[in-house]
Structures are given as C-alpha cells and as structure tokens.
C-alpha cells in the first residue's frame, strides 16, 4: 500500500517539478509585464530538441546543455526585442496573441529544422532506476528535482540580494514609479523573458530523458505550467513552485487511485475550486487596486 503511494508520489513530484519550472517562467514574465507568455512551452521544446540534436552531432552532454540553454536565452531575448518591445503600447491581450503567434512560429520552425519525429535522450546517470522502499525511482527524477531546487534557490537569491532582481520586483509592483526611479523597464522586461526562456529550456532538457521530446511537446507542458502558475496565483514565485508540485502530485494520485480518464481534468478542476474559494490563488498578491 505504502509502496504504491510512494510510487505515485515519485512520479507526481518529478513531473510537478517540471511544471514548477515552467510556471516560474510564466510568473517572471507576468510580473514584469502582465503578459501571459504562451510561447513559454516552446522553450522546453527548444531546450530538449537542441540538446538531442547536439548530442547526435557528438557534442558532450554538459556542453550540449550549455549551448541549448544559450540558444533558448537568445531566442527569449529575440522574442522580447522583435515581437514584444515593438508593440509595447498595445493592449495586454494583443501582446498575448503575439506570444501565441510566436509559439506557432517557433513550433513551425522547429518542425522544419528537426523534423516531426520524437527523440529519446539518454539518462544523465548510468544507472536508470533506484529502488526506494518498494517503489522505483528514475535517477533522472533526482536530476530534475536537484536542478529545479537549485534554480529556485538561485532565483530567490537573485530577487532578494541583487540590485537587478530588486529592479525587476520594483517594475512588477509599479512600472511607472520604477521608471521614475531610473529603472530601465524595457531592459527589465527583456531580462524577464531571458530568464523565463532559460528556466523553460532547463526544464525541457532535464525531463527529456523521461518524457522523450519532439517539436510539439511544448504545447501540453506549457499549458500545464500555466495552470500551475494560475493555481499558485499568477505572479507569485512561491505559488508557482507549490502550484507545480501540487498539480503533478494531484495528477499522479488521480491516475493511481481514481480514474486515469479524468486525471487531466483534475488540474483544471483545481483551478475552478481555487478561483471559487480563494480567488487570488494559494499565494496571490493582496494588493489594493489603483484607480
């Protein structure tokens, strides 16, 4: 019984950590601009696919990862510079549609460059599984959790200890005032897009040995990441992490104990329940609205 529970938990925590990384990406961009960046999932795909294709060219794993992340970072900056910044005076909803266009564009591009097939990536460690109290765990899960943990820690330090991080926070709270204080808000926004791209790419790379990867894998993972961010209360970093883990675990438990048919529905039911009973999400900001 306990082994069974543990098995569901392992599987839930692993995928949940991935959702959390994607959700953090959504949160970063949302905080800086109130834009829901629907291209976020594509960075997962780019991370995974670039690493796979670099590995196939014989590039060693650490270098392949670094290059894939760098590529995603460049694309993140390009997305902001070429698509978001030129339209910065537009409505938020217009910006959201631009990110949808960008995600379709990136997917189309990836499909031309890398083809439509799924690809497998080898596990980072030689042994693929370990046995923990009767349940089996992928060693790759440990990689996912460790990398997600380190990234969350680094982000927390960045926001609380560095000037740049504080500038981002200030911009998210009140862009007008931030601009008056001499913060270059467009630069801050660019940084947010870049960090979000890096987070997405890292998530995509770490999880690829478990999930396989292809040009369209970003759609579902991106959407789940968004749901995780919404559960956590759009805009809260802690909320994104908790939302991601909660979503992953809820899915695995539903598939294990209730119904695999409706495990995907649970994520969205969770959104409704939270909106009905705690509309700001689990960790949503409690701010007074400006008139």
């Amino acid at each position: 019984m306990f082994a069974e529970f543990l098995q569901y938990l392992f599987s839930g925590v692993t995928i949940g950590a991935t959702y959390a990384m994607v959700a953090l990406g959504f949160t970063l961009v949302y905080n800086a601009s109130h834009v829901i960046n629907f291209a976020q999932g594509e960075f997962l795909m780019i991370g995974g696919m670039a690493t796979v294709s670099l590995l196939a060219m014989g590039v060693p794993l650490p270098l392949a990862i670094a290059m894939a992340v760098a590529l995603a970072a460049v694309l993140g900056v390009a997305l902001h510079k070429l698509a978001i910044a030129p339209a910065r005076k537009a409505d938020v909803i217009t910006l959201i549609i631009i990110t949808i266009g960008a995600s379709i564009f990136l997917r189309g591009l990836a499909q031309i460059i890398w083809g439509k097939e799924f690809h497998a990536m080898p596990s980072f460690s030689a042994t693929e599984s370990v046995n923990v109290m009767g349940a089996v765990m992928y060693t790759q899960s440990l990689w996912v959790l460790a990398v997600a943990g380190v990234l969350v820690l680094l982000l927390a330090l960045f926001f609380t200890r560095t000037l740049m991080g504080k500038a981002i926070l200030a911009t998210s709270m009140n862009p007008g005032a931030a601009r008056l204080m001499g913060i270059r808000t467009q630069f801050v926004l660019m940084l947010a897009f870049m960090l979000a791209a890096v987070l997405g790419a890292m998530a995509g790379i770490m999880v690829a040995p478990i999930t396989l990867t292809a040009y369209d894998i970003g759609i579902m993972l991106g959407l789940k990441g968004f749901v995780a961010a919404a559960i956590g209360g759009m805009g809260s970093g802690v909320g994104a992490v908790v939302g991601g883990l909660l979503l992953g675990i809820a899915e695995a438990m539903t598939a294990g104990y209730i119904s695999s048919d409706y495990k995907d529905a649970v994520a969205f039911l969770l959104i409704l329940v939270i909106l009905f009973f705690m509309p700001r999400g689990l960790f949503g900001a409690r701010v007074a609205e400006r008139v």
């Binding site: 339209a87 549609i97 631009i98 266009g101 379709i104 564009f105 990136l106 189309g108 031309i112």
Partner: peptide, 21 residues
Amino acid sequence: QDYEMMMFGLILMLTMIFMPK
C-alpha cells in the same frame, strides 16, 4: 506545405505587432 505552420505564426505575429489595434 511544410512551411505552413511557420507562415501562419509569422503572419499572426506581424499583424499584431504592426496593427496592435
């Protein structure tokens, strides 16, 4: 053909960037 998806995304993006209203 293969470029259809990319073109669709590009058109959507460019229209919204240059005609945000």
